[in-house]
């Protein structure tokens, strides 16, 4: 699988580390979040069969984080962004 780093271009996937689904939002009001809200933040992530917005870091390259959308069936990647949509 070739991953398009927005700074370095297409590189083999073993140069990268996976950050999982993007747009995981920290509880807005942590002091009032209940157990269910914390559980959801800590342990529950989208797991779609199809397009998945996700985070990668170019560990063996420029070491910068970025987001992209990858199809979990075809591994087809739509163009990545330079950090938009963080974290």
């Amino acid at each position: 699988m070739l991953i398009p780093c927005p700074w370095c271009g297409d590189r083999e996937d073993n140069e990268f580390s996976y950050g999982g689904a993007s747009e995981v939002v920290y509880p807005q009001d942590p002091e009032v979040a209940d157990d269910a809200a914390w559980a959801h933040f800590l342990f529950f992530r989208p797991n779609p069969k199809g397009p998945l917005p996700e985070r990668w870091v170019h560990t063996a390259g420029c070491r910068r984080w970025f987001s992209l959308v990858r199809d979990t069936v075809t591994h087809e990647i739509t163009p990545s962004s330079r950090g938009e949509g963080a974290p």
Binding site: S17, Y18, E54
Partner: peptide
């Protein structure tokens, strides 16, 4: 393999 997938294939590395 370290990424989510339903493809029933992984990376050669």
């Amino acid at each position: 393999d370290p990424y989510n997938s339903y493809a029933q294939r992984g990376s050669p590395s």
